[in-house]
């Protein structure tokens, strides 16, 4: 009894010290965010809820026509989420604010993939089917995907959807940031191009941040002093300005720490160069070698119900 317990404690202590040293000496976690990607600034004070962006998105990305047409604004009576057949949806929020004609002032909120600077989905993906491109897009490569849906578990915005009714070749479905249009054809994303009120501004993320700050400064009464996406989860390429507090518009308060940081730091400190498995293998070999033959001799003295 004594031997094994002592050995076990030894291993535990050794492993503990090793882990502690590794954690302390491990390189600080490095963000892999592109330095100045494209992004979009969505100004919710401008959006009129016309759903043109939804329509353009469906056309550009070859998504199926919805059951109720894009002109049907009663769709807005319910809160919707992006799903496997619509990469972007607009929802209507009413804060109780009333205009000069005693009408409730609605705020419309467009939802789509936020294209995080350090995307949790890309860090999590078992095969690297999701990647952060230099131009800002978080891109999905169906040819690598195995359908584990860990990206959906990881996404703090609950964006990736799944073709659950395809039995053999389902895909993860989410906004592509119109990667091909932007990268190859030099065009705007479908939604940004169509928006009739310029609620969506496409541009370099740094430029958009300047623009957003200028708008808040110019008209502080019209905006809350927060750019959603500037710092959330380490920053996102899609960012929002609003006239109402974001929590009232269905936005989730999120930490500023990038989502992958903790898991990646732990994995890196434990498994870089596979040092810990190698050390453990060595320790166990040592124990096995030194305890050879011991058990047989003990066989007669040991045992019995204790």
């Amino acid at each position: 009894m004594g031997i094994s317990r002592r050995n076990f404690l030894k291993i535990l202590t050794a492993a503990g010290t090793a882990t502690a040293t590794a954690t302390a000496s491990a390189h600080a976690w490095q963000s892999r965010a592109p330095s100045d990607p494209y992004g979009c600034l969505v100004d919710l004070t401008r959006c009129i809820g016309c759903r043109k962006c939804e329509q353009a998105c469906a056309e550009v990305n070859g998504l199926p026509q919805p059951e109720r047409s894009f002109e049907d604004l009663t769709v807005l009576d319910e809160k919707r989420r992006p799903d496997e057949s619509s990469f972007t949806v607009v929802n209507r929020y009413v804060s109780g604010e009333i205009d000069e004609r005693d009408q409730l002032v609605p705020t419309f909120v467009k939802l789509q993939c936020m294209h995080c600077q350090d995307p949790a989905c890309a860090s999590a993906c078992i095969v690297g089917a999701l990647t952060k491109e230099d131009n800002g897009a978080v891109r999905y490569d169906v040819s690598k995907c195995i359908g584990c849906r860990y990206c959906m578990v990881a996404c703090p915005f609950e964006i990736p959807a799944y073709e659950y009714h395809d039995p053999i070749t389902p895909r993860v479905m989410k906004c592509t940031f119109c990667y091909e249009r932007v990268a190859k054809d030099g065009k705007l994303p479908g939604c940004a191009e169509i928006c009739p009120v310029e609620a969506i501004t496409f541009g370099r993320r740094s430029t958009l941040l300047k623009l957003a700050k200028a708008r808040i400064k110019k008209d502080p009464g019209n905006y809350v002093d927060h750019i959603y996406g500037e710092n959330e989860v380490g920053g996102t390429c899609w960012m929002y300005l609003a006239g109402q507090p974001f929590e009232k518009l269905g936005f989730n308060p999120l930490p500023v720490k990038p989502m992958p940081q903790l898991a990646e730091s732990i994995q890196h400190s434990l498994f870089s160069y596979l040092w810990s498995p190698i050390v453990l293998f060595g320790m166990l070999s040592g124990i096995m070698w030194s305890s050879r033959g011991k058990g047989e001799r003990d066989d007669n003295t040991k045992g019995g119900a204790r």
């Binding site: 195995i146 053999i168 994995q267």
Partner: peptide, 26 residues
């Protein structure tokens, strides 16, 4: 049964994502 593309279960052997915890588990 759970993964959407059962036939692709071998793909992590070819496409490695070292930042993925799930990759290491697999």
């Amino acid at each position: 049964v759970d993964i959407g593309r059962s036939w692709a279960i071998w793909k992590p052997m070819l496409h490695w994502n070292p930042t993925s915890v799930l990759f290491e588990v697999a």
